[in-house]
Nucleic acid binder design. Structure first.
Lengths: 158, 158
DNA sequence: GCAATATAGTATGGTATCAAACTAAATGGG
DNA sequence: CCCATTTAGTTTGATACCATACTATATTGC
């Protein structure tokens, strides 16, 4: 049936495919983060949890500017998220003793506990994905998505 | 050097890996959509473009409820996006002749043109990803991410 | 030293988003 | 037929986010 002369050019251009990919990623993000947000305890939002989680896993004591950079949000957004977490007493913000412009962000015991609660609440949801989303699929996707993220990161097109 | 008894258990649990994956996806979404949003013409936002794009590609005349479902946002969000697009005269919203509760959403010529302009503006950005993000990588990722999206979609955990 | 520049953080205004509460219209079971 | 329930859409209040413009402190070049 199929002959050499029947080979068709790609139906989608590279740009169309990449656009579809980013679209798919956008919807996944939306679904995952609303589902996750719904089960977070202590009135935490996804953004707030992300910050607490970062401090637990990567260590606290960073400046707001560093956190904004690492979590890929603007400094204005970080100002707002930090203020909300501080009001909940989940973090403490202290002036930097050396640089008069800067501040330093520290976890409180309550913050650490809230983060642990949130992790506990999330595990059952994540577990449900198995076996439809296999471990191999996840480990296969991760490095490729890291390449994509890293490219976007470098070509910040700002 | 390496012996059978040296085989280690997985360093990360399935849940941790999946969480990392969703995290990566979240950051990619953030970076891509801010970059994309910056170059959209006619004061379009990503959400507004997404709606116009859907109407061009999948046909117009749908109800707000259908659009909300298809684009994975709440009806409240759709109400807001439709109002903004209507104010720009990029869509027209008409009452459904049969169902007195419903409305129908139609593209205007201006809306179609604005969407085309936006696509033209986006292509150079997407092209820049080549060859770091290969076509094969994109075509490889797409079906797997569709599986993930589809799982999230079905288990809406709502 | 000091003026120009860079960097840290904040404030403002606008869009997107959700959840929850609401109105109006359709549908279905006595 | 009518009341209860469902469905379509809107409104409100809150958070997140960006862009832009601003203040204050540091750094650098001369």
């Amino acid at each position: 049936m199929s002959e050499l002369r029947d080979i068709q050019p790609p139906v989608f251009s590279y740009e169309q495919l990449l656009f579809q990919l980013l679209n798919e990623i956008g919807i996944i993000q939306q679904l995952a983060s609303t589902a996750f947000g719904r089960l977070l305890p202590h009135g935490l939002t996804v953004a707030q949890f992300t910050l607490l989680n970062h401090c637990v896993r990567m260590g606290d004591g960073k400046t707001p500017a560093q956190l904004a950079e690492l979590l890929q949000v603007t400094r204005g957004t970080m100002t707002s998220t930090l203020a909300r977490l501080e009001k909940k007493r989940f973090i403490r913000v202290a002036p930097d003793p050396i640089d008069g412009r800067a501040k330093r962000v520290f976890l409180t015991d309550d913050g650490r506990a809230a983060r642990d609660d949130a992790v506990k609440a999330a595990v059952p949801l994540l577990s449900q994905a198995h076996p439809e989303i296999s471990r191999d699929m996840v480990t296969g996707l991760l490095p490729e998505l890291r390449v994509l993220r890293s490219w976007l990161d470098q070509n910040r097109l700002a």
